[in-house]
Design a protein around this nucleic acid. Structure first.
Length: 940
RNA sequence: AGGCACGUAGCUCAGGGGGAGAGCGCUUGCUUGACACGCAAGAGGUCGGCGGUUCGAGACCGCCCGUGCCUACCA
């Protein structure tokens, strides 16, 4: 063995996470430790993963979300639960379709050119090649999912669940198909649900446009609009019935500028008198509010001014009776896109002198959450879920606590949304997704199912926008649907075979809503479903509380009559160090994979856990992660210190620690019990940050800083019983700390645990420590607090009075407390080693030596005589500062005690405690003043 | 417009009515028998403001100021 230390170029003292993490994940996976067996007799615990999109790659949100789930699952598994973390991915209809469409675009083709079947084949092919990326990335994070069960929203069992739920909802009258104004994305060319529209304030303009009276071209009404291009679809002008300005206008007729259509002036309470001019142009085909006004006043069929791609349609060239009209000037707009049409119309209005005013105006604009295109309210036939009957029981289960949302404040958001919920548009005009299980008989719906060759033309002629056009047929709004689990062979009404399936697919969130039970095999009555449903916890971000959580609760209750999960833990959003949301366009993303590579998954996970305080967003910075990498290193080095001692003496049994009489041993074992209880409770209440910081504090600042330093002395003494006990306790406490740390830092804990004496094949399946109340030891705790206070006081004197760090001191304690004296005699070795003390005297008879620095520790005078080394001025200054500090404290406590109300009303133990504090402070103050006087006189 | 959260050390944040805390940063001193990714000591705070409840408020209540987020059909 070399005596000199090697130069440290090899970083032997530094922990390298990379090889460790790769090795252990492989071992765990191959050994099947992630697997949950439904035949197990242990109590079940189940979390279903919020399925990431197959188009996605791991971002910080996923990293946080999955780290928290893994912490919970690993912890419960160690507690002996039959813990299942059910993994899978989401087909992400629009997002995935966009990806493949972009690929096609690079080849200069569109999906229409290759056709539906070929397109879907391309998507499946893409999925096979690229859809597993995020799953591989989750493994780098350490996710202990039961991969053998991995599900996909479009695989056959999940598709079957989708069909089953659709058919049941239809049979129960909770589904309908109707023509409604929906949110339409002209780029994706599909309808979107309300929550898929992102509202964003932006700088726009408010244009005031004069609509002249038909019989008095000099007058007219001035309307205000942010979207002049929609005027092509106007069918009326509305004013408030009690608006004196317009009393005489109601019932008259105005002319739509440029187009010339005659518009009635109507009165409706929905008009806000104080907005704009108080006159509202009514465009039922392109505005939800106007649609309702149109219905109330029987204004006839809405006029559709746009096509599904967002260009101007020829459909607006009609008069008030919807008869075609011709206008060369207005005809120019046809085919222009929305922005271009706006420019042209404004120009024409200006030329006609009808543009009265133009002012800047800030307003919210809805955009597609997938592609940011401005959403168009658009009239098309769609499938809807009648949500109210589903929402009511879903509200009730949260009210009754059958589903608990943590933190509770989110329940309010949940209730607000659920109580104001509107029907859910579930059909999407895309190809990638679950095809709607509805068929139409071409004979019974002769005028509603239209061959494509004549489809669009026919639709235009009917004045209706087609629901959707693929290469073969178009289904108009009045068509009668046959909804079935399997494609029907014949029409139940007429018996003929010419049936076509609805071309639409379902909203991706429809299948996501079934996820907690579709993944467990529903509608089959599987063992897994029986054992694991309802699942235990759902862990997710608040951004999909409505998209997903609420819908799972509704669908779980509807389909199984039971809630999908008992708890929902809502965690924060991850932001950058400046508090900005991470986004590619801002360029502030921190890539979790880069972080894992650089600092290790353990350090990263610990960081996320430590920052995951409830109700607040996480600001993540690399410095923070680096700090927790140091913690891994600390842990590693604690093991390295211990390693050579493990081989000495008798082999250490794993499990229970030895009974030791040593106060330091008793103290750390007692503290360990407190930490076990604290960490367990923190995890039970989803306070991940508290679990993390309790462990950090304990491992670093108690185990390493104090206990390990104290044990060093005993270990180096040789192989006596003291060394033996120290070895056992050091090992035991480290092993237990590893168990507690394992859910947060799975890799390094496994690595070290394997090197310690242990039972079992993996820390993953080792039992979670139970708190042993019997090991709580207040006597040892009080003793060690005295030791640490004394050592700290000596170190402080050394530093403040400028005593060289290397000097060995004499320390004299005058204590009139026999118990205190006994403790210090019993722990003298620790005090001397940690305080760097050569001569240590303690007793009631000890006196103050000449020329000494002095302080007070727990009522005990502490002197450090060092003739010639004391800096008198520094010591006097220090003592004065200390007296001031005590005075401040004393003033506070006495203020309290002198208040008769406090003595009368505060609990007795509080009064007693404060009285004790005041007495102690008074004594300390007296002693300090005494020291001060002596020093000042001796300096002289 | 309404709702919700958040203002605590230079920075990022814990704090659950009874002596203001952590990490990082900063200052000073240390090649201390694992760790300089370390050890030790320290400086630094009218807990956003005002009022209220209470014997006692950083915490509970109200108002105000500031910041962020969500919801909404005022064109």
């Amino acid at each position: 063995m070399a005596t000199a230390r090697e130069p440290q170029s090899s970083h032997e003292g530094q922990y390298d996470p990379r090889p460790v993490e790769q090795r252990w994940y492989r071992v765990w996976e191959e050994a099947g430790y992630f697997h949950a067996d439904e035949e197990s007799a242990s109590p079940p615990y189940c979390i279903v993963i919020p399925p990431p999109n197959i188009t996605g790659s791991l971002h910080m949100g996923h990293a946080l979300n999955n780290t928290l789930q893994d912490i919970l699952v690993r912890w419960r598994r160690m507690q002996g639960y039959n813990a299942l973390w059910m993994p899978g991915t989401d087909h992400a209809g629009i997002a995935t379709q966009n990806v493949v469409e972009r690929q096609l675009a690079e080849e200069g083709r569109t999906r229409y050119q290759i056709g539906r079947e070929a397109f879907l084949e391309r998507v499946w092919q893409w999925k096979a090649e690229s859809g597993g990326t995020i799953i591989r990335q989750l493994k780098h994070l350490g996710a202990s999912c039961d991969w053998a069960r991995e599900a996909f929203t479009m695989d056959p069992p999940r598709s079957r669940a989708v069909t089953e739920v659709f058919v049941r909802l239809f049979e129960d009258g909770l589904l309908y198909r109707a023509e409604r104004l929906v949110n339409w994305c002209p780029r994706c060319q599909t309808a979107l649900a309300d929550i898929e529209v992102v509202h964003e304030e932006q700088e726009g303009r408010l244009w005031h446009i004069r609509y002249p009276f038909a019989d008095d071209q000099g007058g007219g009404l001035v309307v205000a609009t942010t979207r002049p291009e929609t005027m092509l679809g106007d069918v009326a002008v509305a004013v408030h019935p009690e608006d004196p300005r317009y009393r005489d206008a109601v019932g008259r007729t105005v002319l739509l500028p440029v187009v010339g259509r005659r518009l009635p002036v109507i009165a409706d309470r929905a008009v806000a008198r104080d907005f704009g001019t108080g006159a509202l142009k009514v465009t039922p085909g392109h505005d939800q509010n106007d649609y309702e006004i149109g219905t109330r006043h029987s204004l006839g069929d809405p006029i559709k001014a746009f096509t599904e791609t967002g260009t101007i349609s020829a459909g607006f060239l009609v008069d008030d009776a919807r008869r075609p009209i011709e206008s060369a000037r207005a005809r120019r707009y046809v085919g222009a896109d929305r922005a271009e049409a706006r420019r042209m119309i404004l120009e024409d209005l200006r030329a006609d002198g009808l543009l009265v005013k133009e002012e800047p105006y800030r307003h919210a604009v809805g955009r597609c959450y997938r592609c940011q295109t401005v959403i168009e309210p658009f009239l098309t036939p769609q499938w809807f879920v009648r949500v109210k009957p589903l929402a009511e029981p879903a509200i009730r289960v949260v009210e009754e606590g059958r589903v608990r949302i943590v933190p509770e404040q989110w329940e309010r958001n949940y209730f607000d949304w659920m109580r104001n919920i509107r029907d859910w548009c579930i059909s999407r005009q895309i190809w990638w997704g679950h095809r709607i299980p509805a068929w139409y008989c071409m004979h019974c719906n002769a005028d509603q199912v239209v061959q494509t060759a004549t489809g669009p033309a026919f639709a235009a002629e009917k004045g209706a926008m087609p629901a959707y056009t693929d290469e073969r047929y178009t289904i108009l709004p009045e068509a009668k649907a046959i909804v079935a689990r399997e494609a029907p062979a014949r029409c139940p009404t007429c018996g003929r075979h010419e049936l076509v399936q609805d071309p639409d697919v379902l909203d991706t969130w429809f299948s996501s809503a079934l996820w907690p039970f579709s993944t467990l095999g529903w509608p089959e009555r599987t063992k897994a479903l029986q054992v694991f449903y309802p699942t235990s916890v759902l862990v997710t971000g608040f951004d999909i509380l409505f998209f997903w959580v609420a819908r799972m609760i509704m669908m779980g209750l509807k389909s199984l009559g039971e809630v999908p999960f008992r708890q929902v833990y809502i965690h924060a959003l991850v932001r950058d160090a400046e508090g900005q949301k991470m986004s590619k366009s801002r360029g502030n993303v921190i890539d979790p994979l880069v972080v894992i590579d650089k600092y290790g998954a353990d350090a990263f996970r610990f960081t996320l856990a430590a920052l995951a305080a409830q109700g607040r967003d996480i600001r993540l910075s690399e410095e923070r992660i680096e700090g927790y990498r140091y913690f891994c290193n600390k842990l590693w080095n604690a093991y390295r210190f211990l390693a050579p001692h493990l081989a000495r003496g008798a082999p250490l049994p794993p499990g229970a620690p030895p009974a030791s009489a040593d106060l330091a041993d008793r103290w750390i074992l007692s503290r360990l019990q407190e930490v076990v209880a604290a960490v367990t409770e923190a995890l039970e209440t989803f306070r991940f940050n508290e679990a993390a910081s309790a462990l950090y504090q304990f491992v670093w600042h108690e185990y390493c800083d104090w206990y390990l330093e104290m044990a060093k002395r005993r270990l180096t003494e040789g192989d006596g019983p003291g060394a033996e006990a120290a070895r056992a306790v050091l090992t035991h406490v480290l092993a237990e700390a590893l168990l507690l740390l394992h859910p947060i830092m799975p890799f390094i804990t496994e690595e070290i645990w394997q090197r310690l004496p242990h039972e079992g094949a993996t820390i993953m399946r080792a039992p979670w420590p139970g708190p042993e109340a019997a090991r709580r030891d207040s006597e040892a705790t009080a003793a060690l607090e005295l030791v640490m206070d004394l050592v700290r006081a000596v170190r402080n004197l050394r530093s403040e009075v400028n005593i060289p760090a290397a000097a060995w001191l004499t320390v004299i304690c005058r204590s009139r407390d026999a118990g205190q004296e006994a403790v210090l005699r019993a722990t003298e070795g620790y005090v001397r080693a940690l305080g760097r003390i050569r001569e240590f005297r303690v007793g009631a008879a000890e006196g103050k030596p000449p020329a000494a620095a002095a302080t007070v520790v727990r009522g005990m005078d502490v002197y450090v005589p060092l003739t010639g080394l004391i800096d008198f001025a520094a010591e006097i200054a220090r003592l004065r500062k200390e007296v001031e500090k005590v005075d401040r404290e004393l003033a506070r406590v006495r203020g309290k005690l002198e208040n008769p109300a406090f003595r009368a009303k505060a609990p007795a133990e509080v009064v007693e405690k404060e009285t004790g504090v005041a007495r102690e402070l008074g004594e300390v103050r007296g002693k300090l003043l005494e020291h001060l006087a002596l020093l000042e006189s001796s300096r002289g």
